[in-house]
Amino acid sequence: MDTNATAAPAVPCRADRPRIYVACLAAYNGGRLHGQWIDATEPDEVREEVRTMLADSPEPDAEEWAIHDHEGFEGCRISEWASFDSVCALADFVEQHGRLGARLYGHFEDNLDEARAAFDNHAGEYRSLADFAEEITRETGPEIPAALQYYIDWEAMGRDLELNGDVFTITLGFDEVHVFWNR
């Protein structure tokens, strides 16, 4: 590999926007590093920036590219051959929903449509699944007599809701459990 290789001049990227590093494969296969960080905004804008990067390649007639890196996607996987349409759609989703959206995307095996649809069934954020079980029981059931309240195992009820497939959870941190209905 050419140790004196340089990348294409950097185009200013917004620090808060997910972005991808797109590399010229002709240069890469020739032992040179040539590519560019590009904000994952609109697919047509990304395609135009890639065309410009390829036109500036040190290798003549460069046509092929690959996504060699990404950042700001909260841990989502991105294939080096992902379409710019799907990358930009994922960037929008992650910008809108943050880590929770990214974790949902992974939960649904990188299916963005299913991750989006899950928000229609978001029951809310709770300290634990037991807190969720207690809340829905108190909201939907008859009043629990004071003498019986301490005999109810809310943890078991929450666990049963999840084991029975009624809900699934995404845990983002201590005391931050997001509960989703499986509908």
Rank of each mutant, 00 (worst) to 15 (best):
Asp61Glu: 14
Glu49Gln: 15
Ile152Pro: 10
Glu109Leu: 08
Leu112Arg: 03
Ala117Glu: 15
Phe174Met: 08
Ala62Phe: 03
Arg127Ile: 12
His178Gln: 07
Tyr28Gly: 00
Leu163Lys: 15
Ile144Val: 15
Ala146Trp: 04
Thr52Cys: 01
Arg127Tyr: 06
Val22Met: 05
Thr169Tyr: 02
Gly30Ser: 15
Thr6Arg: 15
Phe93Arg: 09
Phe93Glu: 01
Ser83Asn: 09
Glu143Phe: 03
Ser57Ile: 06
Asn164Met: 12
Leu161Ser: 05
Ile136Tyr: 07
Tyr151Ser: 12
Asp44Ala: 14
Asn4Gln: 09
Arg77Asp: 10
Cys76Trp: 05
Phe73Glu: 07
Pro145Lys: 04
Asn29Ile: 02
Gly98Lys: 11
Asp61Leu: 07
Ala156Val: 09
Ala62Lys: 14
Ala89Thr: 06
Phe84Cys: 00
Leu104His: 07
His34Phe: 13
Glu59Lys: 03
Ala91Asn: 08
Val46Gly: 03
Ser83Thr: 15
Asn182Thr: 15
Phe108Val: 14
Val177Met: 07
Thr171Met: 03
Asn111Gly: 10
Ala26Ile: 01
Asn121Ala: 07
Cys24Arg: 00
Leu112Lys: 07
Ala91Phe: 12
Thr171Phe: 01
Pro18Phe: 13
Ala118Tyr: 13
Leu129Ala: 13
Ala123His: 03
Asp56Pro: 00
Thr3Cys: 06
Val87Ile: 15
Arg17Val: 14
Ala123Cys: 12
Met1Phe: 13
Ile170Met: 04
Phe174Asp: 05
Gly30His: 09
Asn29Thr: 04
Tyr126His: 04
Gln96Cys: 04
Glu162Val: 06
Leu25Ala: 02
Phe93Cys: 09
Leu163Arg: 13
Gly98Pro: 08
Met1Arg: 11
Glu49Met: 10
Asp56Trp: 06
Ala123Leu: 15
Cys76Arg: 00
Gly75Glu: 12
Asp39Cys: 06
Glu48Ile: 00
Ala23Glu: 12
Thr169Ser: 07
Phe73Cys: 09
Val46Asp: 03
Ser79His: 11
Asp61Arg: 13
Ala66Lys: 14
Phe180Asn: 02
Phe132Asn: 02
Cys88Ile: 10
Thr171Val: 15
Gly72Trp: 08
His70Ile: 08
Glu42Ile: 13
Gly141Ala: 14
Glu139Thr: 09
Gly75Trp: 13
Leu161Met: 11
Met53Pro: 07
Phe168Arg: 03
